[in-house]
Design a protein around this nucleic acid. Sequence first.
DNA 1: TCCTGTAGTTCGTAACTTATGAACTATAGA
DNA 2: TCTATAGTTCATAAGTTACGAACTACAGGA
Lengths: 125, 125
Amino acid sequence: MRPLVHPSIEDITVEGILHALSDPVRAAIYAELAVSSGATCSNFLKISDRDIPKSTLSQHFRALREAGLIRSERYGVEMRNSTRCEEINRRFPGLVMAIMQAHQVQAAERLQATKRKPATRKKAG
Amino acid sequence: MRPLVHPSIEDITVEGILHALSDPVRAAIYAELAVSSGATCSNFLKISDRDIPKSTLSQHFRALREAGLIRSERYGVEMRNSTRCEEINRRFPGLVMAIMQAHQVQAAERLQATKRKPATRKKAG
DNA sequence: TCCTGTAGTTCGTAACTTATGAACTATAGA
DNA sequence: TCTATAGTTCATAAGTTACGAACTACAGGA
């Protein structure tokens, strides 16, 4: 098993951060880690009623880690993950916070929309 | 030729914005449009010493447009583009500004690095 | 030491996305 | 109409992502 890759702070790129957080599953994982540091990979096998296969989850964690957004450490059989938000915020002030806030705005809007018409799932046309 | 697609403000997603701006060419185009509204597609055939084929450019403009980041209008033979930053900022306050600022921080750092060792082009290892 | 269970990774491949040259449409002006 | 300019679309090659199956890694027994 190859060792975990954590880029040093100066190797983290804006492109990498945006790409990593442009995926809704990864954004949800990151948001959760921001409030519950130390969560493991398998804490996310279900994300908002959706089952995520563990191989897929593992890839998502790798993407977040290699973008520099999270730090993963092995404790016995499991991996504890935490965000690197302080470091990143020092280098790119306000970036990650603005992204997470925007995701929250959108989540709140979607919740409202679901309340208004519960049984419909809309498709872009 | 199919008509230009501009999503309405409520159909713009955070994922879409992040994905669109996670590409360095598109981020550069957007940054330039933010200061010089009305620029055309072929104003960008060269981006920081790199030649971009016009079919590729056309796709990048489409990506920005369909993510809701820019508005394109035909004037005679050319397309004038402008950002939709005010609308977006109303819905996702601070998001686009934070991203552009982060891109600027990174560009400034890269300029510094180039000055220090001019002939080297580094590769991630 | 071996067995079993749990946590996560890697591999192979199918599905999707992106980049680009060639051929096209659209418009302006002579 | 002819020519030039601006941009789009198409076909396809190259790259990326998702996920099941098979794997590694570790802990706690027996």
